[in-house]
Amino acid sequence: MDNMSPTVSDEVIAVKNVYKSFGDNHILRGINLTLHKGENLGIVGKSGIGKSVLTKCIVRLIEPDAGEIIVLGTDVLECDNSQLNELRKKVGYLFQGGALYDSMSVRENLFFPVRRTRFTDKKHDTEELIEQSLRSVGLLDAIDKMPSELSGGMKKRIALARTLILKPEIILYDEPTTGLDAVTSGEISELILKIREEYDTAAIIITHDMKCAKIATDSIQVMQEGVFTVTGTYDELSRHEDESIRDYFI
């Protein structure tokens, strides 16, 4: 992304002046964000500041109080249910804990979105999709395991494979390396880059892991008091004049 100059036509997500409160707790206070095609955008900020709320607003898991959210040219807040479901197929979401369906095996976890969204009706294609997704995350061997048999890192990878199976254009990563050791975190960060190459995705990556931010993102936005205050690359922000910004990158 460094040598490219993004244009409006490249925008895959545009968040404009979005507000969200829970009672008297004002989480998002007129936040703006733009994600371009092929871009990996990192979001950092203190816990509870509203990073996950923002990404959940983007896929309308949480309804914002005001503002506009455009995803792949569609106004998310104006969609009816069927339009929203169609849009959601193009936006993958990797949850913090993986959110694997614990009553289903890995194969069934991956088969579930394909079957339910009728992504393909051909059995052969489905098997191929499942294997391709698992191969992308390097866990083809785990195909018949249950989620309870997997480690934290494996769960995240399988969840990522489940996200990839619908071939999304955008992926929202909610703390993809939380709770993982340094080696596995590094592997997941490299995997995020590999996925971008392989699937031509754009991504928003919420993270507290600065190693992940350094490896996997093109630019980073720092969230403070419900808005983004600073934007820049990892190198720029880690040398920022404001100490409170630099602190995030220690």
């Binding site: 849009l87 979401y93 949850f95 959110a99 369906y101 979105p113 339910r116 969204t117 996200t163």
Partner: peptide, 12 residues
């Protein structure tokens, strides 16, 4: 455990 949210966001 966000399993329902995961189903929701994949349009299932």
């Amino acid at each position: 455990t966000e399993q329902i949210d995961a189903m929701e966001v994949s349009g299932t």
